Simulated assay, not measured.
Amino acid sequence: MGGSMQLKKLLVVVDEKHNRHPALKRAVCLAKQSSATLEILLVNYESSFDGFLSFSKEKKAEKDSYLANKKKWLDSLVQPIKEQGITVNTTVRWNKVYYKEILIFADEIKPDIIFKSAYSENMIKRLFITNSSWQLIRNCKYPLWLVQHSDWDNNNICVALDPLHTSDKPAYLDNELISISQALSKVLNISADYLHSYAAMPKPQLFGGEQSEAYEQYFKGFVKEHTEAFEGLLSHYPEITKNHQFLLEGFAEEVIPNFIKQHNISLMIMGAVARGSLDNLLIGHTAERVLESIECDLLVIHPKQPPTHGDTK
């Protein structure tokens, strides 16, 4: 079943403000294994080139020269990669809204994965997810790989599944996550673990015998429902053995980071679903809290088919 993901074209978004480029390193690692082409994108904006003066010939020449310099810098950055025999194309674009230009360019080239560094070395570490990364998580229809560190331990992949679709995820998204993880684990020659976490309603503080019994029944039914859904989903994939299946009790933002530490996970794959006009409030609800507590890379996948009800973006 699975393995449908092609790895022919990888888009890497480079940020020149940093002298380290973990996303580029990660994409190079994958390109070596898969013979994919790398498309490197640098998005620039300089407010002094905008406004009424920008219509003058001098200003236009200045802007062209500015962009040509950026292109030169980008080409020199990727030269050592080209020397390793990897096919690399570079593009410099101009847009005040950084993430929008990434999406526009992605639609033009249709990459298999977009790589972006998530730079988490700042002092207030847990504010590291920038607004542009969140906008990409919400709006990017291509697989988005957020890279946290330059070093790639190449340990294990972990896939967070949601077989009961409690996060409004369409059923086929779990199969998409499994398919992608299988393709990547094959290319990178590492194993993948599959997990589902569930949290029941807490036990009421004040209860008599009857209420206690009712709660026990609720809890048993709740666990049974999640167990059956998880096992039912994975029963379609006999190649995923029991020792790679993990059903965890607890809140995702607590149990997933613990799992990642214990199992030496280098990459976590999870699904994201934008939900119409509420997506700004809801999309990050679990993803954000998980992301801000994990130390590994994150690959976010949106469902391929568009929602059938009119999405108003």
Rank of each mutant, 00 (worst) to 15 (best):
S179D: 02
W145Q: 05
M201K: 12
D107F: 03
N69W: 05
T312Q: 15
I265V: 07
K57W: 12
A61R: 15
K57T: 15
K261A: 06
A31I: 03
L177W: 05
Q33L: 01
W94T: 02
L161R: 08
I104W: 03
F230K: 12
V187T: 15
S277R: 15
K186L: 14
E176I: 15
E249R: 12
A106G: 14
L278I: 13
V12Q: 00
F222L: 05
K169L: 11
E176C: 05
I104P: 07
P307D: 09
W73A: 05
R26P: 01
D15N: 14
V290P: 01
L103N: 03
K261N: 07
K17L: 06
N131Y: 13
P307C: 04
T166A: 14
A272R: 09
K141E: 09
T166M: 10
D75F: 05
I265M: 00
F259K: 08
H309F: 14
N156A: 06
L67A: 02
I240T: 03
D193R: 08
Q305A: 12
A36R: 11
F105W: 00
V43R: 05
E39Y: 01
V92Q: 03
V159K: 13
E39D: 04
K32G: 02
I283W: 09
I256Q: 07
I294M: 08
M268Q: 09
E288P: 01
L67E: 00
R20T: 12
L24P: 01
E58W: 07
G232N: 09
K9R: 07
L10Y: 04
G276T: 06
V147P: 10
K60L: 04
I180H: 15
S150D: 08
E83A: 05
I178R: 11
E292R: 15
N19C: 10
L267W: 05
K100T: 10
I109N: 02
I178A: 06
C140Y: 05
A252E: 07
P238I: 01
K63N: 06
D151I: 10
K224R: 13
L161K: 09
Y194M: 14
A287E: 09
L184E: 14
W145K: 07
S133M: 14
I301D: 12
A229N: 04
V97L: 13
K9E: 09
I178P: 11
K9N: 15
G276L: 01
E292G: 10
L299A: 02
K304N: 11
T227E: 10
V97D: 01
V43Y: 01
Q217H: 14
E58M: 04
Q6F: 12
V223C: 11
Q262D: 05
A61D: 15
L24C: 02
Q33D: 06
E253I: 02
L291W: 12
T90M: 00
F52R: 13
Q84D: 04
A118I: 09
L282T: 09
N189R: 09
F49S: 08
N258M: 08
E101G: 01
S191E: 10
N89P: 07
A118N: 02
S35W: 07
Y66R: 03
L10V: 00
N44Q: 15
M5D: 07
L291Y: 11
C29V: 00
I114N: 07
V273E: 06
L53W: 01
L146F: 01
E176T: 14
